[in-house]
């Protein structure tokens, strides 16, 4: 993520933070941003879920992810050592300073889109955090110990729905297939590491995401078989989220999320 420093500074406007990012800081922010943005997306469902039980489940998933983000931002603040906390990272960075995957910022769409997005991410995040429990960085390992339990549940929950929708009715299968077409291209980005991250994984501080691909593919194959889904092929594999080059959707999400905090900088809430 060597390009990110210029990118971040170049992307700064108005009240945004100025950050000097090291590879470890970028890595931690990226994982925090994944969790926050996906948690925020899930929270958009509140009051509008297809059944009351799922209303509660979606809120649980969102709360877990926001909780993970908070721990990771706290650690990011410690790594940076400039006195910044979760509020600064979440509310006072501009879209190009966010490092989340393009997948997690994609709009909720219908329930099939939301659940498939969650499944594709959880099938990665579950083994990712489990591997991070024994990675070299002690703080990340402690966060991972909590996150891996949560993501194992997320994976079960989302996989259950992918199977239900894939196997359920003609309409649910059709909607799930549309969601798969839309989201599949964004999955490749999960397994990419830039030079900074590669150096961290070589040193054993973090894990190499590419190493998780076989595990992820096996989960996908197992669940898709039960859901009667065909794993798409296709060449198009957009990326850039880790480097701050996002889809148009993130700006809108952040405009909503940040507007109140940014309208009153420096105050307590």
């Amino acid at each position: 993520m060597s390009g990110i420093c210029e990118q971040a500074v170049g992307g700064k406007v108005g009240s945004a933070l100025t950050l000097a990012e090291t590879p470890l800081l970028s890595h931690v922010l990226a994982r925090a941003d994944d969790a926050l943005i996906l948690g925020h997306r899930l929270s958009e469902w509140t009051g509008h879920a297809p059944l009351l039980e799922e209303e509660l489940a979606l809120a649980n998933l969102a709360l877990d992810l926001i909780g993970q983000a908070r721990l990771l931002y706290e650690y990011a603040g410690a790594i940076e050592g400039a006195g910044h906390g979760e509020g600064d990272f979440a509310y006072f960075r501009d879209p190009p300073q966010f490092h989340n995957l393009l997948l997690v910022e994609q709009p909720n769409g219908d329930f099939a889109m939301t659940m498939l997005r969650h499944f594709l991410y959880a099938a990665f995040a579950d083994p990712y955090w489990r591997a991070m429990v024994v990675a070299g960085d002690a703080t990340l390992a402690a966060i991972a110990a909590k996150a891996e339990k949560e993501m194992a549940y997320h994976l079960r929950h989302a996989a259950g729905w992918v199977i239900r929708l894939g196997d359920g009715t003609e309409e649910s299968h059709r909607r799930l297939a549309v969601a798969l077409d839309t989201l599949w291209p964004f999955t490749g980005e999960m397994f990419l590491a830039d030079a900074g991250e590669a150096a961290l994984s070589d040193a054993g501080t973090v894990i190499d995401p590419a190493a998780l691909r076989p595990r992820w593919e096996a989960t996908i194959a197992r669940v898709f078989a039960e859901a009667n889904l065909t794993r798409p092929g296709g060449e198009w594999a957009p990326s850039g989220g880790r480097a701050g080059r996002h889809s148009e959707h993130l700006g809108h999400l952040l405009a909503t999320m940040q507007h109140l905090a940014r309208s009153h900088p420096g105050v307590r809430w």
């Binding site: 009051g47 509008h48 879920a49 297809p50 059944l51 799922e54 219908d110 329930f111 199977i163 239900r164 929708l165 196997d167 359920g168 009715t169 309409e171 649910s172 909607r175």
Partner: peptide, 15 residues
């Protein structure tokens, strides 16, 4: 929410 969730509930029942 109820109307748009109808196909989800239906799918869960069918499955």
């Amino acid at each position: 929410a109820h109307d748009e969730g109808g196909w989800v509930r239906e799918a869960a029942r069918a499955h």
